[in-house]
């Protein structure tokens, strides 16, 4: 089981669902949420401000929506990869969006931090697949 995951989405209900599914699927111990890119960046800023932020616990995985009012997923990816990724090298991101089309997919290729696209509802199968693909040791221990 992962220690901490982050879900960034402007829809409160979706955040609720994601939190619940993550909890009951034993995907992670803790789920933190943000409603746009700016809020998410603020969380990482807060981590960086603390001495020894690793001990405080950084999210290992993020479910990121692309279309959000405020700072959208694209802008977040641009800023995060440029300024934050060096400090959080272990973070992996899955795009969780009902509307990922071919153009989006092609544009996302330039961000290696994006490891998956979830174009459907978040459920136990989706979470197990992520665990198996990217966190083999964790699954084995779980």
């Amino acid at each position: 089981m992962l220690q901490k995951v982050m879900v960034v989405n402007d829809n409160e209900l979706l955040l609720m669902i994601a939190k619940k599914v993550i909890a009951i699927s034993d995907f992670a111990h803790e789920t933190i949420t943000a409603t746009d890119g700016l809020q998410a960046l603020a969380y990482f800023d807060a981590l960086l401000e603390q001495e020894g932020h690793r001990a405080l616990g950084e999210p290992e995985f993020m479910f990121l929506d692309l279309h959000m009012p405020g700072m959208d997923g694209w802008e977040f990816l641009e800023i995060f990869t440029e300024k934050y990724q060096a400090y959080f090298p272990n973070l992996k991101i899955a795009i969780l969006s009902a509307s990922v089309d071919m153009t989006d997919m092609l544009m996302l290729v330039k961000y290696p931090i994006v490891v998956d696209f979830i174009n459907t509802a978040i459920d136990e199968n989706v979470l197990n697949n992520i665990k198996n693909k990217f966190f083999n040791t964790v699954t084995a221990n779980a």
Partner: peptide, 11 residues
């Protein structure tokens, strides 16, 4: 968007 939320809730 609402459809995938409904699927998530069913789950």
């Amino acid at each position: 968007a609402p459809l995938s939320r409904m699927m998530g809730i069913v789950n």
